[in-house]
């Protein structure tokens, strides 16, 4: 009994230690954090300039534009997930730890979301306003980002773990990850469009929630296997 309690406390210990370490390291080099956010803002602001400033048209394309930009911004941020840990050798220490790799990975992906998906979600109402999205649409956008971006982090982490040992990962990573991002994109932008049309979005949100639940349970298994394979070379 006591042994079980101990194990649980230890798991929490590594989970929190991992988050603390990644957060501290990230905030000491904030440029890596800010780049994806700037990308998000720049892409969305360029649309009205390049296409048309007409409010009706912008309102119609807003869900798609916002979600595609958020997705690409997440893709940009995947580099910071495992690459630096691989280079400085802390990734192999994670694998050689008696602590379950599952806990470390969950903590890493959660931190990645806190530093990429969450800021994107918080930034989105501002950009939604620039594209004349309605209040209902903005609310749906934020909800879908809140549920969808963690899924993007988990799926991205699988791709990132598979390619971590390779020299140039950029294109390969996108090719691996983008097809898996498409369901999230479809359900999420569909939800925002439904909200604009005044339709219920509970169904879309439930599907996104299901994707998130699946990702939380299954992705860490895939990620840890991928990391072991990448490091065994």
């Amino acid at each position: 009994m006591t042994a079980q309690v101990d194990v649980k406390q230890v798991n929490q210990g590594i989970f929190i230690a991992m988050i603390r370490r990644d957060m501290t390291a990230a905030f000491r080099h904030p440029s890596d954090l800010i780049n994806p956010l700037i990308f998000f803002v720049v892409v969305v602001t360029l649309f009205p300039l390049a296409v048309t400033p007409e409010s009706d048209f912008l309102r119609e394309i807003a869900p798609g534009v916002l979600w595609v930009s958020a997705l690409l911004a997440t893709l940009l941020s995947l580099d910071m997930l495992f690459q630096s840990d691989f280079q400085d050798g802390t990734l192999e220490q994670m694998i050689l730890s008696p602590q379950p790799l599952y806990a470390s990975i969950l903590a890493k992906v959660f931190t990645h979301w806190l530093l990429s998906g969450l800021p994107l979600t918080l930034l989105s109402p501002l950009l939604a306003m620039m594209l004349f999205l309605s209040a209902d649409g903005t609310q749906a956008l934020m909800l879908t980002l809140l549920l969808g971006t963690p899924v993007l982090s988990f799926i991205g982490a699988i791709g990132s773990a598979l390619t971590v040992g390779l020299r140039k990962t950029g294109l390969l990573l996108s090719l691996l990850v983008l097809p898996l991002y498409i369901p999230v994109l479809i359900f999420a932008s569909g939800a925002v469009q439904a909200a604009i049309a005044g339709l219920p979005i509970v169904g879309h949100l439930a599907l996104l929630g299901a994707l998130l639940a699946l990702a939380v349970v299954l992705a860490p298994v895939a990620i840890s296997t991928a990391l072991r394979i990448s490091l065994s070379g």
């Binding site: 210990g13 590594i14 991992m18 400085d88 050798g89 602590q99």
Partner: peptide, 22 residues
């Protein structure tokens, strides 16, 4: 490899290693 994070202090690095070992 160094096994330490460059951005962190020596103390922070070892605290993380201690947590890894439980």
């Amino acid at each position: 490899a160094a096994g330490i994070k460059q951005a962190l202090t020596a103390h922070e690095n070892l605290r993380w290693h201690a947590a890894l070992t439980g």
